[in-house]
């Protein structure tokens, strides 16, 4: 048999088999997204009435009704500004602490490191109840601050700190020492030398932090109760009419609206994004 298919032919055949296999495997990864967008254009009756992926009639109105049904634009903005704030604050806080842990010698540094590592193992669910009472004490129930503070200082922020620390450790020390010779303060070295050198790590932290915050579900579910303060994931699960009956067509239109922009950004910057993830895992 091998004789008839030379090694080169064999390679081509195996390549083709691989590609077919991968294509089949890819179906559950992409099909839901296609189905989601197509159903977003259908009427409620058609979504379950016909399995066709092409809508019988394109109901653009769904995408308008999404915004009149609940304050969806506001909810979209909430998610966006919360995720951006979490990302920005995490970058500053994590890179400061990460730098200190990587570069500065101080009594207690190993203790701090040890404590932080232990926090990595603890799911948010463990501390969510006391954090609820903490936020109550601060008067922050039904506000967005818990959704910003908890991810920044919770396990996720600590992951970010360690990512930054690992990256700083790998940077060559000499540049920073040169900076010190030139009279830069420690803060100056961090800001003018270490930060610009660690753009890849910052990008990685930014991307995983943004997605983490964008995806948050449990925290908004507990801390936020008014409709105009909802974030996207909550809003998506809330396409029911005033009596609790689901509005599938609007829900799927809204889901498409929430997913597509992120997906487009991802497709444009996919190489960098995927590399950031690679970086974040290996170093972490």
């Amino acid at each position: 048999m091998i004789g008839r298919f030379g090694p080169k032919r064999l390679r081509i055949v195996s390549r083709v088999c691989w590609t077919i296999g991968l294509s089949v495997a890819a179906i559950p990864f992409v099909f839901p997204l296609l189905w989601m967008v197509s159903s977003g254009f259908k009427s409620a009756a058609e979504i379950f009435g016909s399995p066709s992926i092409v809508p019988r009639e394109w109901r653009w109105l769904n995408f308008v009704e999404v915004f009149t049904y609940q304050p969806f634009a506001q909810q979209y903005f909430n998610s966006l500004y919360i995720s951006v704030s979490v990302t920005a604050i995490t970058l500053v806080v994590a890179s400061l602490a990460g730098y200190a842990l990587a570069r500065l010698r101080f009594a207690g540094s190993s203790l701090v490191g040890l404590f932080l590592v232990s926090a990595l193992m603890v799911p948010e669910e463990v501390t969510i109840i006391p954090n609820f009472f903490l936020m109550k004490r601060f008067g922050l129930i039904d506000s967005h601050l818990p959704l910003i503070l908890l991810p920044v200082f919770g396990p996720h922020g600590i992951v970010a700190t360690f990512l930054m620390r690992q990256y700083f450790l790998a940077l060559p020390k000499e540049v920073e020492e040169a900076g010190r010779m030139d009279g830069l303060s420690t803060f100056g070295i961090w800001w003018r030398i270490a930060i610009p050198l660690s753009r890849p790590a910052l990008a990685a932290v930014a991307i995983i932090t943004f997605l983490h915050s964008w995806n948050q579900f449990l925290e908004p579910l507990i801390f936020v109760s008014s409709l105009d303060k909802f974030t996207l994931p909550l809003a998506l699960s809330n396409f029911t009419d005033p009596y609790g009956a689901p509005l599938w067509h609007l829900q799927l239109a809204a889901t498409s609206l929430s997913v597509i922009p992120i997906l487009v950004v991802y497709l444009i910057a996919q190489r960098q994004i995927i590399e950031s993830f690679a970086l974040s895992g290996v170093k972490g």
Binding site: F132, I141, S226, G244
Partner: peptide, 20 residues
């Protein structure tokens, strides 16, 4: 203030317990 019907009682309780 509109609270969605599915989680109404629960969210109301959380507001009361949450001091709001």
């Amino acid at each position: 203030e509109t609270i969605p019907p599915d989680a109404y009682t629960q969210k109301l309780t959380i507001q009361i317990a949450g001091g709001n």
